[in-house]
Design a protein around this nucleic acid. Sequence first.
DNA 1: TCTTTTCCTGACCGTATGGTCAGGTTAAAC
DNA 2: GTTTAACCTGACCATACGGTCAGGAAAAGA
Lengths: 210, 210
Amino acid sequence: MTEQARPLRRIEIRQQNETLILQAAEKVFAEAGFGGATMQLIADMAGLPKANLHYYFATKEDLYRRVVQNIFEIWLHAADSMDKAPGPVEGIGAYIDAKMEISRRHPDGSKVWASEVMHGAPVIQDYLETTLRDWTTGRAELIRAWIKAGKMAPVDPEHLLYMLWATTQHYADFGHQIETLNGGKPLTNAQWQAAKDSVKSMILRGIGAV
Amino acid sequence: MTEQARPLRRIEIRQQNETLILQAAEKVFAEAGFGGATMQLIADMAGLPKANLHYYFATKEDLYRRVVQNIFEIWLHAADSMDKAPGPVEGIGAYIDAKMEISRRHPDGSKVWASEVMHGAPVIQDYLETTLRDWTTGRAELIRAWIKAGKMAPVDPEHLLYMLWATTQHYADFGHQIETLNGGKPLTNAQWQAAKDSVKSMILRGIGAV
DNA sequence: TCTTTTCCTGACCGTATGGTCAGGTTAAAC
DNA sequence: GTTTAACCTGACCATACGGTCAGGAAAAGA
C-alpha cells in the first residue's frame, strides 16, 4: 500500500520542484554541456514532464543561469574561512580544505562553472567584472599584508590565487581523468585526505609559509 | 586584380582543406562545446560549404575525434624536455615552461581537451587508459628517483603531476577569467613571463627543489 | 586527346529540440 | 460551498541540425 501523504502546500510544491529541477539540470549540464543538454533529459532525470520545466523556468537559458548562479554562491562562501585567519598557514590552509571539499561534494557544479568560463562566460560575465573582481582584489590585499608582515614569501598574489583555484578545482573538473589513473575507481576517503594534505603541503611550502 | 595562382595539386588541396577545417573546428568546439558546435558554423569559419566538410570528415564526431587526438599529441610531447633533465629544477622547470607555452599558443586545443575530459572522455577514454596511464607512471617513477636521490622533498608524485597540469592549463582554460581580472585585456608578454616565473618558483619551492 | 578519379556543392530529407498552449486539476481564499 | 489563482501536462509547432546525394568541375593518368 502506498503511503497516504498529506497534500503538499503551495510553497512546498514550488520549492520541491524547483530544487528537483535545479539538481537534475546541474547534473545534465555538467555531463553534456549547455549545448548538449536537452530539456527532455533534465525533465526525465527530475521525474517531471518537460512542459512542467517551462512552467518554472521560462527558457533553457534561464534554467542554466540559475544553476550557474547557485554555484557562484558556493564558490564565494568558500573564502569566509580565509578572512578571519591570523596568517597564511591557517587562512590558505582552510581555503584549500574548503575548496577541496567543494570539489568532492559538488563536482557537477564545478564542471558547469568551468564550462561557463571556458566558453567566455556568456551569462556570468557581469559577475566576473564586479563580484569576482572585488573578491580577488580584496584577497590579494590580504595576501600582501601577510607578505609585508613577513608571514610568507613575496609571491604574486594573483598567481597564487590562480594556483589555488586551478589545483583544487582540478579534482572536480578532471575527476574522470584522476579516476581513470586511479585504476578506474573513485578516490577513497583516505585518498581524498592524502590529496588535501599533498596540495596543502606543496602550496604552503611553495609560498614559504611553514 | 586577383593573383593568378597555379592550380593546386591533389595532395595540396587535400592537406590544405583538412588543415583549414581542423583549425576552424578546434576554435568552434572550444567556444561552443561539442553539443553547441554546428557543422555550418565550422564550415563558415573555414570558408567552405558544409557539404565539403562531410566529404573530408564523415561525421561531426569523426571531426571532433581528430581535433582531440591532435591536442593529445601536443600534450604528450611537452614532456620530452622533462626526461633528459638531471633533476627536478631543470626537468619540472622545463615542463612548466613547455606547458605554459602550450596554454599560450593553443588555448583552444586545451579547452577542447578539458571539455572532453570533463564530459567523461567519451572519445578518448582508451587513450587515458593506455597512453596516458603509461606516461604518468613513467614520470612518477622519475620523480620518485629524484626524491630518493635527495634532489627534492618526498611529495606524492601523482598529486604533483595533477598540480602541474592544473596550474598550467588554467591559464588556457580559464583564460577568459584571467583576462577579465586583468582589466579585460589579454596578458602581455611581460605578464606571461611573470606568470611562468611565479608558477615555477612556487612549485619548485613547494617540492623543495631550489 | 580521352578517360578516370577525385573534388566540390546546392538542394534536399528526417529527426530532435526548445518552446507554446488550451484545457484540466488542485490548493488557497473568502 | 464557491470562487480564485496557482499548478500541471499531452499534444502540437516551427526551426535548426546532421547528414545525403545527384550531378558538375577539375586534376591526374593513359
